[in-house]
Amino acid sequence: MACSIRDVAKMAGVSVGTVSRVINGFDNIAPERIDAVREAIRVLGYRKNSAAQLLAGRRGGSRLRTGNIGLWMAEMGNEWSSNSIYINYLSGIEEVCARRGCHVLLEHTSAADGIPRCVHDGKVDGLIVKAVNDIPPVLGELARQLPVIGLSMLERDIPIAQVSTDDHRAGEQVCRYLWERGHRRIAFVSMRCHHRMFLARLQGYEEFLRARDAFDPELVQSALPGPNPNLPEKEFPDMSGPLEALLRLPEPPTAVIAANDWMAAGFYEAMEQRKLRVPEDLSVVGFDHLANLFLRPRLTSYETPMRGMGAAAAEWIIDMIEHGDSATGPTFRMVNGEIVVHESVSDGVAG
């Protein structure tokens, strides 16, 4: 039975991303991890699919002119098709493609390895990729054969063009906003703080407070992740654990930053169960600006420009196709958002 890159990662005791980097020849990896991956590959008899063979017809300047752009939602099965995050990315891509005379071919896969069918069958001239957690290991190889753009990745080890937003900057901006409103005890709550997006937001928050000698690690609290982090959440996460931990502190926070709006909604629920009020008892800020259809008071949130990122990726990849270009290394274009102020923040009392 053929094994997958996940099997290799499990045997080697490393992440799928590390296996991908070993396979693609990156050298910024600990030698013992390289040895473990190579041994797992040998034992399992792993053979990666060769995008170069499947796409050999594209060499020598030959490019299919299908008029189609592929949108590969890796690790994002059909369950994501009605999710607002997915819809916002897609809206930006479709708007540009319609204006520039292209069509979008959507492909959802539940895993991040393998080659998307739209590429395998030669139905697209370029590929935009959005992944939930793991970076598809074939991206570097695909990018040598046709234009590929990673959407909201910001991975400097992957040699492809990427459109993203600066989540580190966003975390700093949100913290600055609360600081300027007079808050000094500012907490950060999340699930899966190892996720690159949430981690970048946390790092921006932490650096802002450290620069003012105001960072307290006890103000950073995490909830347990859901059973399947690759599926869109159907219910608000249980944020009662982080709330209780913050309330037990000798000096509780006056404001809380949630790593995204969905977690902020869970924090609202936890506060309501404790008969605490937003913003009278705690100010709350989120990220993405996607939750105000169902939150009262409306949530102040950093509006992540998903539609704008989708549009920027579509413009860029069509330009690459028309000019016969492909990225030869990691190249980034940043599309930044802004804080949208609503009613979930009250003024603090600066000490």
Rank of each mutant, 00 (worst) to 15 (best):
L247N: 04
L249I: 09
P253L: 12
P242K: 15
W262T: 01
A259Q: 03
P242T: 04
D238C: 04
K234D: 09
D238P: 03
D238E: 10
A258R: 02
M263F: 05
D261P: 10
P250L: 14
A258M: 02
M239H: 09
S240F: 01
P253N: 02
D238Q: 03
L247A: 09
L249M: 11
L246R: 03
L247V: 00
P250W: 14
E251A: 15
W262M: 15
P237S: 10
W262V: 02
F236T: 08
E251D: 13
N230M: 13
F236C: 08
L247Q: 14
A258G: 05
A259I: 04
E251Y: 07
N230T: 13
P253F: 13
N230S: 11
P252W: 13
P253H: 03
E233F: 08
N230E: 14
P252L: 15
N230D: 15
M263V: 00
E233K: 11
L231P: 03
P250D: 13
E233D: 11
P253V: 02
A258C: 12
E235G: 08
S240R: 10
L247G: 01
L231G: 05
N260K: 09
M239S: 09
G241Y: 05
P229G: 06
L247Y: 04
E244W: 05
L247M: 15
P253D: 08
A264S: 07
S240E: 11
P252N: 13
T254N: 06
V256C: 01
I257L: 01
N230G: 12
E251I: 11
T254P: 03
D238S: 01
E233M: 14
D238R: 02
P229S: 06
M263G: 00
A255G: 08
T254L: 01
A255C: 03
D261W: 06
E244T: 11
N260A: 06
